[in-house]
C-alpha cells in the first residue's frame, strides 16, 4: 500500500492516512465555524446577499439530524435484529423465503419514495420522515442479522449444543458474538442510508441538515447547498468510519495477529 516506513514517519502515515480523525475534525470545525467562513463564501458568490445559511445554527441542524437518525436507527435495530433472529430460528424458518422476497421487493423502492408516499397520508413534518427511516433502516439490519447467523458454522453450533449449552446460551454466548461483525455491518449500512434519507426528509418539512440544501436549491443559493452538503457528507463519512472501527473491535478475534490494519479494513469493505 505504501513503501515500508519505520519510526515516526510510519506513525505519521498511519494518522494521516486514516480518514476518521480528519473527517471528525472537519465536521466539528465546520459545524461551529461556518459563520466565520462568511468572507470566503461572499468572495466565491458575490451575487448573493446572504452567503451563509442563518435560519438555524448548524450545530442545531446537526443535532436535529443526528437525533432523528439515532431514534429511527434504534427502533430499526431492535426490530431488524429480532426479525432476523426469528426467521433463523426453527419457529420462524418457514417464513424466511417470504421475508427475503419482501426484502428484495423493497430494494426496488427508493427511500425517497417511501417518504413521498408517507407524507401526503400522515401529514408533513417529522413523523413521515421517522416512519420512512425506520422502515428503510430495518431491511439491511435484518439482512445483516441473517447473513451473520448463517456465517456461524453448523459444527460450531452443534458442538455448543453437545457441550451442554441450552438454546439461549448458545445464541448469546456463541452465535451472536460470532455473527456480531456481520450484524454490525448491516447496522452500518442502515445508519448511512438513514443519514442520507434524513437529508431528503427536509422536503417533507423535517428540520435536518438537508434544509440548507433544499432551500438553497429552490432559491438558487449555491452557497447554502454547499454548506449543507459538506456537513452531511462529513457526518456520513465520520459515522461510517466510526462503525468501521467498531467492526474491527468486534471482529478482533479474527484478525488478532494481522498487523496490517489496511488489510483488515479491506476485509470488511469487501464483506459488505
Amino acid at each position: 500500500m505504501s513503501p515500508p516506513l519505520k519510526g515516526w514517519p510510519k506513525a505519521l502515515w498511519r494518522v494521516a492516512g486514516d480518514p476518521l480523525p480528519w473527517s471528525f475534525a472537519a465536521l466539528v470545525a465546520l459545524t461551529l465555524g461556518m459563520p466565520a467562513l462568511r468572507p470566503l463564501f461572499a468572495a466565491l458568490f458575490p451575487e448573493l446577499d446572504r452567503p451563509v445559511y442563518q435560519q438555524d445554527s448548524f450545530a442545531a441542524l446537526v443535532m436535529a439530524h443526528l437525533s432523528m437518525v439515532a431514534l429511527s436507527s434504534a427502533i430499526a435495530i431492535a426490530g431488524g435484529v429480532l426479525l432476523g433472529l426469528w426467521v433463523c430460528r426453527p419457529a420462524g424458518r418457514a417464513f424466511r423465503p417470504l421475508f427475503e422476497s419482501l426484502l428484495a421487493m423493497s430494494q426496488s423502492f427508493p427511500p425517497v419514495a417511501v417518504l413521498a408516499v408517507a407524507a401526503p397520508i400522515i401529514g408533513f413534518g417529522e413523523a413521515p420522515a421517522l416512519i420512512a427511516l425506520v422502515l428503510y433502516g430495518l431491511l439491511p439490519i435484518a439482512q445483516g442479522t441473517m447473513a451473520g447467523l448463517d456465517s456461524v458454522p453448523a459444527s460450531t453450533r452443534e458442538v455448543a449444543q453437545g457441550l451442554g449449552l441450552d438454546t439461549w446460551q448458545s445464541l448469546y454466548k456463541v452465535e451472536l458474538p460470532l455473527a456480531a461483525p456481520v450484524i454490525l455491518s448491516g447496522i452500518r449500512t442502515s445508519v448511512i442510508i438513514n443519514i442520507g434519507t434524513a437529508t431528503i426528509a427536509s422536503t417533507v418539512g423535517a428540520k435536518t441538515l438537508g434544509s440548507p440544501i433544499i432551500i438553497g436549491l429552490s432559491g438558487f443559493n449555491t452557497a447554502y447547498v454547499i454548506q449543507g452538503a459538506v456537513l452531511v457528507a462529513l457526518l456520513a463519512i465520520t459515522s461510517d468510519q466510526l462503525f468501521g472501527r467498531l467492526e474491527e473491535r468486534l471482529g478482533a478475534w479474527r484478525t488478532r495477529d494481522a498487523t496490517d490494519a489496511g488489510a483488515a479494513r479491506f476485509v470488511q469493505v469487501s464483506g459488505r
Binding site: M1, P19, L44, I192, I195, G196, T197, T199, I200, G210, I213, G216, L217, T222, V225, I226, G228, A229, V230, V232, A233, A236, I237, D240, G262, A263, R265, F266, V269, S270
Partner: peptide
C-alpha cells in the same frame, strides 16, 4: 492498490446522494 481504491470508492458511496449532487454544482 486494493486498499486505497476501495477506501475512496467506499467514501463516495457513503456520501448521501443529495449532498453529492450539491457538491458537484459548484
Amino acid at each position: 492498490a486494493r486498499g486505497p481504491v476501495f477506501t475512496v470508492l467506499n467514501i463516495i458511496q457513503t456520501i448521501p446522494s443529495i449532498a453529492l449532487f450539491g457538491l458537484l454544482i459548484g
